[in-house]
Simulated scan of single mutants.
Amino acid sequence: MTIRVLLVDDQPLLRHGFRLVLAAEPDLEVVGEAGDGGEAVRLVSILHPDIVLMDVRMPGMDGIEATRLIADEAPLVRTIILTTYDIDQYAFSGLRAGASGFLLKDVQSADLVDAIRVVARGDAVVAPSTTRRLLTAFAHRIPADATTDAEQPDPLASLTDRERGVFAGLASGLTNAEIADDLSLSDATVKTHVGHILSKLDLRDRIQAVIFAYENGLNSRRA
């Protein structure tokens, strides 16, 4: 199947460079370009891309707000944030807004292509080690509210005991293999549990699961 990509960046030369890279791949098709977030949101509703490569700092609507609107209005469309810095507030805000990952703008061509394919399959492009660094750097920005109090509803009430164990691994940024080793399960079993967890908690991917854990005060304890 051809993966349809929308390029969003206020610099035409960058868009042109990304287009050239993607045009060389038989399974990737650039279906449109936008120079700001508002135009990106409009084109998503018209062109129905599979993937949006989204710049952050643009005139008018920025990439974070555009990502949030796309996640709300077109949940099947997945966004990859393109940022100048490895770990910064833009990348984190983009992930919280619903992006399925982030890349540096100087990403190698092969890594960009691979990331698009990975996200199109429903996974995320942020490595677990990077996820841990990112969330460690910005955990203080997330309010630790009363959701950990015994009187508050359990945010994991819909999960089975085994799924809670797998979720604890997700919350720590572990890979499926690491979770499998920790819980003495097969990789296939862990993958199945991860799918059930994301579905039950209405989360897009494992990055959103980590953020969900921090937002609900679950990061400091085993589920």
Rank of each mutant, 00 (worst) to 15 (best):
D72E: 15
P153K: 02
G60S: 11
H196G: 02
L156Y: 07
A157P: 00
P155E: 08
A188F: 12
D123V: 01
V31C: 13
R57D: 12
P155V: 09
E33A: 12
L112T: 05
D106M: 06
D72S: 13
T79Y: 01
D181Y: 01
I207Y: 00
L218M: 05
V5R: 01
K200L: 12
R117I: 10
L13D: 12
A74N: 07
P49G: 06
P75V: 11
A209K: 05
I51D: 03
I80Y: 03
D27Y: 02
N219S: 15
H16D: 14
S93H: 11
S158E: 14
G94L: 06
V21W: 05
D202S: 14
D202N: 14
T160W: 01
A127F: 08
P59A: 10
F138L: 10
L159Y: 03
R204H: 10
D145E: 11
S100A: 14
A213N: 05
I64E: 04
V56Q: 02
L47R: 13
R4C: 06
K191V: 11
D72Q: 15
G195M: 07
I51Y: 02
M61E: 08
R96F: 04
V21K: 02
V190N: 04
F138Y: 15
D202F: 08
S172H: 13
A157C: 05
